[in-house]
Simulated scan of single mutants.
Amino acid sequence: MRVLGVDPGLTRCGLGVVDGAGGRRVRCVAVDVVRTPADAPLPERLLAVGAEVERWIERHRPDVVAVERVFSQHNVRTVMGTAQVSGVIAMLAAKAGLPVAFHTPSEVKAAVTGEGRAGKQQVTTMVTRLLALEEAPRPADAADALALAICHCWRAPMLDRMAQAQARSAELARAHKARLEAARRAGEAS
């Protein structure tokens, strides 16, 4: 599975592509950060980030796009920009026919470090080790994008199994309900 991980942001948007080879084996394909000037108009910044993400989708052909889920922050302006970038990413992935998976920061941290409250440096250190990189990805947005991709590589099989189990459970519940209804009707007819 090839995953494009995106750490959304207006000033710095981290992009990382990771190949998952089954189990916990992962390999870094590419990593970078898209930067936009803080004084540029919002539509131009979103367009710049979007254009680069489109290039990455075309160049790297991911199977899925994993995006950090926006969470509440004290700085409303920052969270709004992050949410807007996330929306652009989700739209571009959908346009390319790719599924989008959203992961919370704590899910990502727990997946790569074993601790949902790990700091940026711990995440960067573990991403560097897990991907056997010669040097740590910088800035932290780059490491976070790779961490998102790793998280999805590892969580996707479990999430798929859970979805299949839920679908099977719903199917069994419908069949049981139909049998009960049939038994009720048979009882009324007698």
Score class of each variant (00 low, 15 high):
V29A: 12
A30Q: 06
A30M: 10
V31Q: 07
V31A: 13
V31Y: 12
D32E: 13
D32P: 03
V34I: 13
V34S: 03
R35A: 09
R35N: 08
R35I: 04
T36V: 08
T36E: 04
T36D: 04
P37C: 03
P37G: 09
P37F: 10
A38G: 06
A38N: 13
D39N: 15
D39R: 13
D39W: 14
D39H: 13
P41M: 09
L42F: 14
L42N: 05
L42T: 07
P43A: 14
P43V: 10
E44C: 13
R45N: 05
R45Y: 12
L46T: 02
L47A: 12
V49M: 08
G50D: 04
V53P: 00
V53N: 05
V53S: 00
V53M: 04
E54M: 09
W56Q: 11
I57W: 07
E58N: 11
R59M: 06
H60M: 08
H60T: 05
R61F: 11
D63K: 14
V64T: 11
V65G: 06
A66Y: 05
A66L: 06
A66R: 03
R69P: 00
R69V: 05
R69F: 01
R69L: 10
V70K: 00
V70E: 01
V70Y: 00
S72K: 14
S72L: 10
S72R: 15
Q73W: 09
N75H: 12
N75D: 08
V76W: 12
V76R: 07
V76G: 15
R77K: 14
R77C: 05
T78S: 15
V79W: 02
M80R: 07
M80W: 15
M80G: 00
M80Q: 13
G81I: 00
G81M: 01
G81P: 02
G81K: 02
G81S: 11
T82A: 14
T82G: 12
T82P: 06
T82H: 15
A83P: 03
V85N: 10
S86R: 09
G87L: 01
G87K: 04
V88L: 04
V88Q: 04
V88M: 06
V88K: 03
A90E: 13
A90Q: 14
M91A: 12
M91P: 05
L92C: 07
A94L: 11
K95G: 10
K95I: 07
A96D: 07
G97S: 05
G97W: 02
G97M: 04
L98M: 05
P99M: 11
V100S: 01
V100Y: 00
A101V: 15
A101E: 06
F102S: 13
F102D: 04
F102W: 11
H103N: 13
H103Y: 14
T104G: 00
T104V: 01
P105K: 02
V108Y: 03
K109C: 00
A110Y: 11
A111P: 08
T113E: 00
T113D: 00
G114R: 02
G114K: 03
G114S: 02
E115F: 04
G116N: 08
